[in-house]
Write a protein that binds this DNA or RNA. Structure first.
Lengths: 189, 189
DNA sequence: CAGCTTAAAGCAAATTTGTTGCGTCTGGAG
DNA sequence: CTCCAGACGCAACAAATTTGCTTTAAGCTG
C-alpha cells in the first residue's frame, strides 16, 4: 500500500513531474529510469521498487493525463452533445500525444487496472451526457451501446489503423449509434 | 533491407523458434534477449541490431501467431457464418495467450505496421465471408461496418475491460451489425 | 562460375541499466 | 511520546545493451 501523505506523496509527485518535464525536453522515447530519478531527486532503486520498471511508471503517468478534467459541455440535444463530445475525444486520443498515452497506459499494465480506469473515464463522461438527455425526456441509447459503437471503433482505429482518420468519422459513428437507441440489446457488463 | 534467403532467413527462423520454445518453457515474462540469443545459437548483438529490442522482437513473433491459418468455414447463410467466425475470433483473442499476443503486437510497434497487419488479417477473413454471401445474393453490410461494430467492440473490451466477457457478447454484436446492412455509411478508409 | 560488393553476423570491451541487502528515516497508530 | 512498519538512500553487484571492428556469405556482374 502506498502511504497517502508525507514523504511517499512527495516522491510520487516529484517523479511524475520529472517524467512530464523530461518527456517534453528530450522526448518520450529517450526517457530512462536513472534519468528520471536524477531529475526527481530520488535514487533509481526507489523507482524500481515502487513502480517495477519504466513501463509501469509511464502507464501510471499516462492514466493521470488521460483523466478528463471537466464534465462534458451541455449543448442542447443529445445528438449534438454526443457528437461534440466524440469529436473532442477523437481529437485528444488521435493526436500523437494521445496515442502515446494510450499505448503507455495499456503497455505497463500487468493486471489491466490502468486500462480499466481509462475506459471508466470515458464511460463516466458518456453517462453524464446520457443522463442529462434522459432527464430532458429524450430517448437515449445505453452507455454500453455508445461504448461499443462509438468509443470502441475510435480506439480500434487509433490503435490498429491510424491512417485516414478524421473527425467526420467520429460524427458518423455517433449518428449510427443514435439509430440503435431503441433496438439495441446492451452487453453483459 | 532484410535479405530474403540464406543466413538471414535462417537466423530469423531460429530466433523466432527460440522465442516460441522459451515462452512455453519459462513463460513469456521471463524472456530476455541474451537467453533467446543463446537458444537460437546467435549473439545478442545480432538480435539488438536486427530487431532493436525485446519488445519489437516479441511484436514480430506475435503478428506471426495472429495470422489466420485457414479461410473461415462456409456455413449456410451470412448470419451463421459471421456469428461462427466472431465466436472463434473472440475465443482466440480473449484467451490469455491471445491477449498476450495482441499486447505484444501493439507494444513493440513504433510505426504501427504490425498492428495494421493484424487488422488486415481480420479484414481479409471478413471479406471472404461477405463476398460469399454477396455471391449468394444476400444483402450484406460493408466490411468496414463489421470491423467497426463487431471487431472493434471485441478488441476494445479485451484490451480495456477484460472482465465478464463471453461468446454471447460476440453473437449480440453480429446481430446488431446485421441490422446496419442497409443504412450504414462506411467510414473513410 | 569466379570475383566483387555489401548487408548482416560474430566478437569483445565499454557503458548503462536493473537488483539486492542493509541501515536510516518518517508517517501514523496506540 | 514511543514504537512499528513501510519507504527511502546507499553501495556493491549482476545483468543487459551499445558499439567499434572483424569476418562471413548472399546475390550481382561480367
Amino acid at each position: 500500500m502506498v502511504r497517502p501523505g508525507g514523504r511517499s506523496a512527495r516522491v510520487q509527485a516529484s517523479v511524475h513531474a520529472a517524467v512530464r518535464e523530461l518527456a517534453s525536453e528530450v522526448g518520450r522515447d529517450a526517457l530512462t529510469v536513472p534519468m528520471i530519478a536524477q531529475r526527481a531527486g530520488v535514487t533509481p532503486s526507489t523507482i524500481y521498487r515502487r513502480w517495477g520498471d519504466l513501463q509501469e511508471l509511464m502507464s501510471d503517468v499516462a492514466v493521470e493525463r488521460l483523466r478528463p478534467d471537466t464534465a462534458p459541455k451541455d449543448i442542447g440535444d443529445l445528438a449534438s452533445s454526443l457528437t461534440a463530445w466524440a469529436e473532442q475525444f477523437f481529437d485528444e486520443m488521435a493526436s500523437p500525444a494521445g496515442r502515446a498515452y494510450i499505448r503507455d497506459a495499456l503497455l505497463g499494465d500487468p493486471d489491466g487496472s490502468n486500462a480499466g480506469r481509462c475506459s471508466a473515464y470515458a464511460a463516466e463522461q458518456i453517462d453524464i451526457i446520457l443522463t442529462r438527455a434522459t432527464e430532458r425526456g429524450e430517448n437515449t441509447p445505453d452507455t454500453e451501446t455508445v461504448i461499443d459503437h462509438v468509443v470502441a471503433p475510435l480506439m480500434y482505429r487509433i490503435l490498429f489503423r491510424p491512417d485516414g482518420l478524421d473527425a467526420s468519422y467520429a460524427r458518423r459513428l455517433v449518428a449510427t449509434a443514435m439509430t440503435l437507441s431503441r433496438t439495441s440489446s446492451p452487453p453483459t457488463a
